[in-house]
C-alpha cells in the first residue's frame, strides 16, 4: 500500500516534500485520469487539507489567488472586469464537477499546452509563488511553464499562490475557446485578450495570449505593440485581420493532432483574436462604462 499524506499545514507539506519522492495531488482531475484502469503506485501528497492555500485576497500590490482555489470559486468571485478573461476561462474548464475540484495551481503545474487557465493569466502578467523549506520565490507564469508538461518547479517546492499585479486589475479582459462541442472539451485553440485604454479612447496597453497553438501558451508581443493607439472603430475594421494573421504566423507553432491540423489552428487563432479584441470593444469603448 503506497503512502498517502494529507497535511493540514504548509510547513508539514513542505517537510514531506523535502523528505521524499511524493507526487503532489491537489484537485486530482489530472492525476486520476492518467491512472484509469491502473493501480495507484506512487506516494501521494494530498495538499487539499491546507486551507490557507484557498481563497482570493487583495494583498498590497497583488491580487493573491491561493493555489488551491478551485475554478468555480474564481468564476464566482467579485473581481474587476480586467479579470473577465480569467473568470470566463474558469467557467469553461472541464465541467461544473471539474471546476469544483480542479485548482489554479494544478492547471499551471500540469502545464498542458491547452490549459485554459494559462492564456488569461499570461495577459494578466500573473506570477506564481513557489514555497519550499528554503523560502519563497516568485516567477512570472511565462517563465514558470517551460514546455509541454514541463515547469520550473524545483524538488521540494509547492505552488502556493498565483499573484496578479494590481496594475493588471484595470482594463478589460476576455477569453474565447474553440472546441467541437459545447461543454467538456479540450481547446483546439484558446485566446485571451486584455486591453487598457487611455482617456482618448485609444488602446494604451494590449495583451494577447493564445493557448494550444505552441508548446506552451504564449503572448503575441508584436501584435500587442501594433494594437497600441487603436480606437474601437479601428478594431471593427476588417483590415485588422491581416496584421493578426501575420502575427500568428510569426509567433505560433501549432501541431496537428487528433483535434485539428496546424493550419486550421493558425487560422482559428487569428479569427478568435479578432473576435476577442472586438468583444473587448463591445460597448463602444474599451471596457469603460
Amino acid at each position: 500500500m503506497p503512502a498517502y499524506a494529507c497535511p493540514k499545514t504548509l510547513d508539514e507539506a513542505l517537510d514531506h516534500l523535502a523528505s521524499g519522492a511524493w507526487t503532489v495531488v491537489a484537485g486530482g482531475t489530472d492525476f486520476y485520469p492518467a491512472r484509469t484502469g491502473r493501480a495507484i503506485g506512487e506516494q501521494m501528497l494530498d495538499i487539499t487539507g491546507i486551507n490557507p492555500l484557498r481563497g482570493i485576497t487583495k494583498d498590497g500590490g497583488y491580487w493573491r489567488l491561493g493555489g488551491l482555489t478551485p475554478w468555480s470559486a474564481i468564476e464566482g468571485a467579485g473581481l474587476p472586469a480586467a479579470f473577465d478573461g480569467l473568470k470566463c476561462a474558469a467557467g469553461q474548464i472541464g465541467s461544473v464537477q471539474i471546476q469544483n475540484t480542479a485548482t489554479i495551481a494544478g492547471n499551471l503545474c500540469n502545464a498542458s499546452p491547452a490549459a485554459d487557465g494559462v492564456p488569461p493569466l499570461l495577459t494578466l502578467e500573473a506570477e506564481v509563488e513557489l514555497s519550499s523549506r528554503g523560502g519563497t520565490r516568485t516567477l512570472p507564469v511565462a517563465e514558470f511553464i517551460t514546455g509541454n508538461r514541463k515547469t520550473a518547479i524545483e524538488p521540494g517546492e509547492l505552488l502556493t499562490a498565483v499573484l496578479i499585479p494590481v496594475e493588471s486589475a484595470t482594463g478589460i479582459g476576455c477569453f474565447l475557446k474553440l472546441g467541437v462541442r459545447e461543454y467538456m472539451v479540450i481547446s483546439m485553440v484558446s485566446v485571451a485578450a486584455w486591453i487598457q485604454s487611455a482617456a482618448d479612447g485609444r488602446i494604451e496597453n494590449a495583451r494577447i495570449a493564445v493557448g494550444a497553438c505552441s508548446e506552451i501558451p504564449r503572448r503575441l508581443p508584436g501584435l500587442e505593440q501594433s494594437l497600441a493607439g487603436l480606437t474601437v472603430d479601428d478594431a471593427l475594421d476588417p483590415a485588422l485581420a491581416g496584421g493578426i494573421e501575420a502575427a500568428c504566423l510569426a509567433d505560433l507553432s501549432p501541431i496537428g493532432d487528433v483535434r485539428a491540423t496546424a493550419a486550421y489552428r493558425l487560422h482559428a487563432a487569428a479569427e478568435l483574436i479578432g473576435r476577442a479584441i472586438r468583444q473587448c470593444a463591445k460597448n463602444g469603448s474599451w471596457g469603460r462604462p
Binding site: 498517502y4 494529507c6 495531488v25 484537485g27 486530482g28 482531475t29 492525476f31 486520476y32 485520469p33 501521494m44 494530498d46 487539499t48 487539507g49 468555480s72 461544473v96 464537477q97 471539474i98 469544483n100 475540484t101
Partner: peptide
C-alpha cells in the same frame, strides 16, 4: 457525480483519504 459538502464532483477523482 456525488455531492461533497453540497457541491457536485466526480467521485472517481476524489481520494477517500481527504
Amino acid at each position: 457525480t456525488v455531492l461533497i459538502d453540497g457541491q457536485p464532483v466526480c467521485a472517481c477523482m476524489v481520494p477517500v483519504g481527504r
